[in-house]
Write a protein that binds this DNA or RNA. Structure first.
Lengths: 150, 150
DNA sequence: CAGCATCCTAATCGATACTG
DNA sequence: CAGTATCGATTAGGATGCTG
């Protein structure tokens, strides 16, 4: 399903960046195979946000990334980097040295994303206490409902 | 693993919203069980972004959401709505009527997210052509490399 | 060091049937 | 209408071993 080879461009001219208020129409929720949703899934996936955020600051090698992104496996790091590279968000530079060295950095396109990602992570950091509290309250409600006579 | 019951608050005082540049320290990439990453995974998941974006505009019923979010199953819509409700991002109102009616709307906390989500979706819409082109180029490279003599 | 291939488990998700 | 419960299929993802 994620086959290469450019799967049909349904919407040919959406890149008019000028109008900030295209939201009133709000037609992007339509089809499942809509490009926007596919791309959104990619950049918002479990590891991509992390990797982009890290590369936002500095160029990093594969091993450095592996160490910084705690919990990621070599396989998933490879997959994530490949996807981001395929989408043109990061650039991969191979240095022909004796111990192979490969560096990853944000591409110009990727750089246009950092503001948005910063905002998202910042929002999460600033509201995590509220969310944790909300979860606790919700779970308490559930338990109270589950064992009313206990 | 996603057990209820408030799983340990490691970071007790992060809600200082004033400093915009806490990014220089950049310590959020640390532990896998970090709250920020868990929350990020939740709101950035396949359906949550869609649902939040839809509720951003208007209050909607279960069936209306099901129709608007093309491709979602009843199960996933239920799961997504429950998660968002548990995180305190949406509010669920049950009307005791003959044909049951349940309405979902963004909570005040959820409303603080809409700007960020708008930005993310907007970015995707504005850059989708570039990404599609990057993918095509990347795939072409791969194929050229795979069959050099063919 | 970087990273691909393989195997295998665990989690996700969709379809269906049933309930208040 | 608005879900819940169950089951089977699909996929993501981790561990490991091998290559340039």
């Amino acid at each position: 399903m994620r086959s290469p080879g450019l799967p049909e461009v349904t919407d040919p001219a959406p890149a008019s960046a000028a109008d900030e208020k295209k939201w009133e129409a709000f037609q992007w929720d339509a089809r499942e195979d809509c490009e926007v949703r596919q791309i959104l899934d990619r950049i918002a996936d479990k590891w991509s946000l992390l990797v982009i955020a890290l590369l936002e600051e500095e160029t990093l090698r594969f091993g450095e990334l592996a160490r910084k992104v705690d919990g990621i496996s070599k396989r998933m790091l490879t997959v994530t980097l490949r996807n981001l590279e395929r989408d043109g968000l990061i650039q991969r530079t191979i240095y022909a040295e004796v111990p192979p060295r490969v560096e990853y950095r944000l591409s110009p396109l990727g750089c246009t994303l950092i503001g948005t990602i910063q905002a998202l992570v910042l929002w999460t950091e600033e509201h995590q206490q509220q969310i944790i509290a909300a979860r606790a309250a919700f779970d308490a409600q559930l338990e109270a409902r589950a064992e009313p006579t206990n």
